[in-house]
């Protein structure tokens, strides 16, 4: 290390930092995962974003200034973000036991991965933007930063259920006295007449029809269906409490037939079909339900 260092060019660092921070801020809306909801949750996310953006934006200037030790330390700091995923997962898993409709392990993992990845994205955006600014000047850097931000956002936005699945309203009815049906899909057995009455009077149901093979694979995933039920319940509410297990919203496949369709039954607080359908359509497609070729040919049976 030489004692004298070249004058520091602050511009790439500042532009890179701003872009990196912005990359995280854009995605910091509680929206679909209903987390974070409170300022304390936001603060920790913002603090992490600041650190991530700073790491990303200062790597290049450190290398240019031949401060290799500093650059190495920055990559060390980056590994700290691995904990983000674990922390998110733990928080959501703790909550799982005390919410009436659980998110399901797949959804929780998805949210946790997203949180982790967002910080890395922030870091990458900061790094790329600072690089562009360093070699192209302020104006090119600003324009480049915006483009990188947009690319990052497109890259990070996952699919929603409406891309692969068609959602239609369905009728709730009972077969053989106690089997609850959502359209043509058998949901469950409701033994108590009191609950059956309530379902017939106040229940809502939809049928989910896959648009393609991918949609079929998505629906056959249990975690994905739990996520759908969770989103449905958060949108229209659910008449349920401890001791009312038969009033849990369910999302089940059309089972003896195996047509690949699924039904969803719910006892909503707010009886609003449009809201329910919208919420289901906006449910993210989980990573764990990604299409696998092994399962799909079997599911191509239209009827049985």
């Amino acid at each position: 290390m030489s004692g004298s260092s070249a004058p520091i060019n602050w511009t790439p660092m500042i532009v890179g930092f701003a872009a990196g921070l912005l990359a995280r801020m854009i995605s910091l809306r509680s929206g679909r995962s209903h987390y974070p909801g409170y300022p304390s949750g936001y603060i920790s996310q913002v603090a992490l974003a600041v650190i991530a953006a700073m790491i990303g934006s200062s790597v290049l200037p450190a290398l240019i200034g031949k401060q290799f030790t500093a650059a190495t330390f920055l990559t060390l700091a980056a590994t700290q973000f691995r904990d983000v995923r674990t922390t998110e997962r733990q928080t959501l898993e703790q909550e799982e036991k005390l919410i009436l409709v659980s998110r399901g392990p797949g959804y929780i993992e998805g949210i946790a991965i997203t949180y982790e990845a967002r910080n890395y994205l922030s870091m990458l955006v900061a790094l790329l933007t600072s690089t562009v600014t360093e070699f192209g000047g302020l104006v090119v850097g600003l324009i480049g930063g915006v483009i990188i931000l947009i690319i990052g956002e497109i890259f990070m936005s996952g699919k929603h259920l409406e891309d692969v699945i068609d959602v239609q309203p369905a009728k709730i009815w009972f077969d053989k006295g106690s089997l609850l049906y959502a359209g043509e899909v058998m949901m469950m057995e409701v033994g108590l007449p009191h609950s059956r009455e309530r379902y017939e009077k106040e229940g809502l149901a939809v049928v989910l029809t896959p648009k393609n093979e991918r949609g079929q694979a998505v629906l056959w995933n249990i975690s994905q269906r739990q996520a759908i039920a969770y989103e449905a319940a958060t949108a229209v509410g659910v008449q349920k409490d401890v001791g009312y297990p038969e009033q849990t919203p369910l999302c089940r496949m059309a089972m003896p037939q195996g047509t690949g369709k699924a039904g969803l039954s719910i006892l909503p607080v707010e009886r609003d079909m449009n809201k329910l359908i919208h919420a289901i359509k906006r449910t993210p497609v989980l990573e764990s339900s990604k299409w696998t070729r092994i399962t799909s040919p079997v599911l191509n049976r239209e009827e049985m």
């Binding site: 106690s178 409701v190 401890v242 001791g243 009312y244």
Partner: peptide, 11 residues
């Protein structure tokens, strides 16, 4: 029984 124990009733 179902209200007390959270068990599910089947007919």
């Amino acid at each position: 029984l179902t209200r007390i124990t959270n068990a599910i009733v089947h007919d």
